[in-house]
Amino acid sequence: MGKELKRLKRRKSSQGKLDDIWEHSNSSLIVHYSCESFYDRDDGKTPRVTSIAVRNLASGQTESFSIHKVAEQQKLPFDEIDENYDELEREMLGEYFEFVRSHQHFNWVHWNMRDINYGFAALEHRFRVLGGEPIIIAEDRKFDLARAMVSIYGLGYIGHPRLQKLIEKNKITDKGFLSGKEEADAFEQKDYIKLHQSTLRKADILANIFERTADGSIKTNSSWFEQYGVHPKILVEIVRDHWLWSLVVMVAIGIGLISRAADLF
Rank of each mutant, 00 (worst) to 15 (best):
D20A: 04
F97R: 07
Q227C: 14
W224E: 12
K3W: 09
I205L: 03
F120W: 07
K194Y: 10
A252T: 13
E23P: 02
S246R: 05
R90C: 10
T199Y: 02
R201H: 08
F38M: 05
R212P: 02
L76W: 00
K6S: 08
E188T: 14
K6H: 13
H196V: 00
D86P: 07
A53W: 03
E72L: 02
T46S: 11
P161L: 14
D42A: 14
A184W: 08
R147C: 00
V236A: 12
D204V: 01
R201Q: 13
M113Q: 11
S59V: 05
A138R: 11
S37A: 11
S13Y: 06
I158N: 05
P134D: 12
G229P: 08
E98V: 09
E36W: 15
E188K: 15
I238W: 05
G154I: 06
D204P: 00
F78G: 00
D42I: 13
A148H: 00
K12W: 08
L76P: 00
L264R: 12
V251R: 07
D144E: 07
G180P: 09
T62K: 10
K219A: 14
Y85S: 05
L8I: 14
K190R: 12
S222G: 11
I258W: 13
F177N: 05
L123E: 09
L88D: 01
L57Q: 03
V150T: 15
V49M: 09
M113R: 08
Q104G: 11
S102G: 04
Q227K: 15
R212Q: 09
G16I: 11
R212K: 13
V248C: 04
K45R: 15
L166Q: 05
D215H: 04
L8E: 09
A146D: 05
N107D: 04
N208M: 04
H24S: 07
H231Y: 09
R41C: 07
A207G: 14
L235V: 15
D19P: 06
V70W: 00
I193H: 10
S25M: 02
G256E: 09
N221M: 12
R7T: 06
T173D: 06
L93E: 04
